[in-house]
Structures are given as C-alpha cells and as structure tokens.
Design a protein around this nucleic acid. Structure first.
Lengths: 173, 173
DNA sequence: TCCTAAGTGGACGATCAGCTTCCGCTTACT
DNA sequence: AGTAAGCGGAAGCTGATCGTCCACTTAGGA
C-alpha cells in the first residue's frame, strides 16, 4: 500500500471513531469521509462496506480499551475504582470504539476480550464488598451499551448516577 | 364529528402512544395508521402533521401522568417511594405519552405541569432524607428523557439501577 | 327508507437521505 | 519520466416516508 493511502486509512479510522461516537454505528458514510478530509470514493476503496469499517474500527481500538482497563486495574486503589474509571474512560474517550466493538456483527472476539478482563475486576470489586453483589459484568456491559447505542444520551450527568447505582455504599452522600 | 370519526380518532391516539413508545417521536405515520387499523388518509385528516398528533397525544395522556403522580403521592408510604413508583409507571406504561409530552415543540405547558408536581415530591423526598440531596427534579426529568428519547434502552434492568443512583440509602444491599 | 355530507382507505407521485459506482485527474514511487 | 496506484466527488440508484387526492362507503337526520 502506498504511503499516502495508509495515511488516509488512518485518518478514516480516526474520523470514524468520532463520528460513530456522535451519531451511532449507522452514521452516514459520507460524513465519515468528509470528517477524514477524504472523498467517499476513497473510503469505499478501503472499506467496501460499513461492516468492514466497523470491524476495522473495533480491531484498531479495542486493544486501547483493554489497555485502559489494565491501566485502571493497576492504577486504582481498588477493583471497584478501577471499574468506575474504566467505564468513564470508555464512554468519554472511546465511545465510538465501544459502539463498534459491541455492534454484534463485527468482531465478537473483541467484545469477548473486554468481557473477560472486566469479569475479573467485577468479581474482585464484589469480593471487596465495594460493588453490590446482585449485579454483574453483564450489567456493566449493558451500561456501556446504553451509551454506545444511544448517542443522544449525555454521559456527564448520568454516568456517575448510574455508577452509584452499582455501588455498595455510594460516596459523597 | 361523526361517531365513527371520533372512534377512529381515539384508536389513532392509542396506536400513536404505543408506536411512539416503540419507535420514538419520528416513527412513520403510516405505521401509526396501520396499527390503529386505519388508512393514512384518515390519520392526516385528523392530524394534518406530526406535531399536531404529538401535541394531541401529550394533551390526551398528560393528565393520566399527573393522575399517576398524584396517586403515587397519596398511595406511597413516603415521597421518595412515590417518585420511584411514578417514574416506573411513566416509563413502563406511558412511554409514548412521556416522549410526546417532552418533545420540545409540542405542549410545553404539559411538561410544565409535570415538572411542578414532581418538584414538590422531590423536595419532600429530600427533606425526608430519603433522596440524595445533590440531585434534583431536573435529574428525574432527564431520567425520563433518556427512556423517552431512546426506545432502544430497555428499562427493566436499568431503571431500578438508575433509581438506586438517586437514592440516599439504596435498599436491598 | 332514502339522501347527502362526512368520512374512509390506500394508490400515487414527490422528496429525501444515504449508498455505491465510475471515471478523469493526480501523485507516489521506481 | 513513466506508470500504476490512489484520489475526489458527481451522478444515478434505492428504499423509505411524506402528504395528497379521489372514487367509494356509511352514519345519521328528514
């Protein structure tokens, strides 16, 4: 692949992440192309259809999410803080990637990788007695899904409230 | 208005509530008509455009919501239970009506009526020390909005968790 | 019962947004 | 300098929804 082509490919993926974050996984392809400063033709040349693009998006960024999870796990004072930090990060910084990763058709193994890591942390947080025991990894994933699939939902206010809903003894009350 | 016409009008409103709950305020008009067992022509005769329909929907059902709120207020053991019961009811039973009522353009006074009643209850719940003091009526309304504007979000699991996020001392932990 | 104005359904043409192709021009690399 | 790869974006296509229109039906009064 020619160097300029590779550059464009990267620009497209970056733009796609932002646009998907804002408009969901069915955002117009042309919007993605324009955001990347590229013609639609170029986009279609690299990614023959939307699913290919989403799969590439997931693949490209999912390790970033896993890294974030690992980083949160080692940086945080405890497992529950790590879970919270990861969710905030995923929703705030990588919403498009999360959406792509969770979009059923593309990259199921990407989703799986996330789930497994998360599962460990959640179990730990519950063992610590910090996270309520009647919820689970699936709830955290669903939480991500709510934001990933509903670009209209602004996380600023709700994410903290929802996280408090998972907390055993919510802070600051 | 002829008796059959009135009957159809009612069927349309009922269908609209369901369809709006499922598909959001921009659901296809034809879907509403078919659900009501009526032709599109009939729908357009009664409601020249979508906003008229939404406004009628809001007007028709908003008092139902206010009643539900009042009922919850008098039936519940306390204000906070009443707020929870109302939100659950509104989201479960009247999602379409809520969506219509909150859809900015139509019926701002309908929204207002809800807010005022709710405001009293929320203040009470906080005074009781049952609801965390750093949230407000606006948060509860936003909560309704999340479900009203995002038909994809299934309330079953999330609504309780989110409500727990507003709770001062969440139950069952 | 009969008459008529109100009501009805749904086909139809208009519109629109997004998808995808195509091709003449440009550019990176040899 | 030559050439194949790459590029942009115009243009045609498609499918979905809108809103109108009119020939047919029916409620309800005389």
């Amino acid at each position: 692949m020619r160097a300029d082509a590779r550059r464009n490919r990267d620009k497209i993926l970056e733009a796609a992440r932002d646009v998907v974050a804002e408009r969901g996984t069915d955002a117009p392809m042309e919007l993605i192309a324009r955001r990347a400063g590229v013609g639609v033709g170029t986009l279609y040349r690299r990614f023959p259809d939307r699913n290919v693009l989403l799969a590439a998006l997931a693949e490209q960024y999912v390790h970033e999410l896993v890294d974030a999870l690992d980083h949160a796990a080692s940086a945080g004072p405890d497992a529950w803080s790590a879970v919270r930090a990861f969710v905030v990060h995923a929703v705030d910084e990588s919403r498009g990637a999360v959406a792509a990763a969770l979009a059923g058709t593309s990259a199921p193994e990407a989703r799986q990788a996330l789930v497994e890591r998360l599962d460990v942390l959640v179990g730990q947080a519950q063992a610590d007695g910090a996270m309520r025991p009647d919820v689970g990894t699936a709830d955290v994933m669903d939480l991500l899904n709510v934001f990933a699939c509903n670009p209209g939902v602004i996380p600023e206010r709700f994410l903290p409230l929802m996280l408090d809903g998972l907390d055993r003894r919510p802070p600051g009350r």
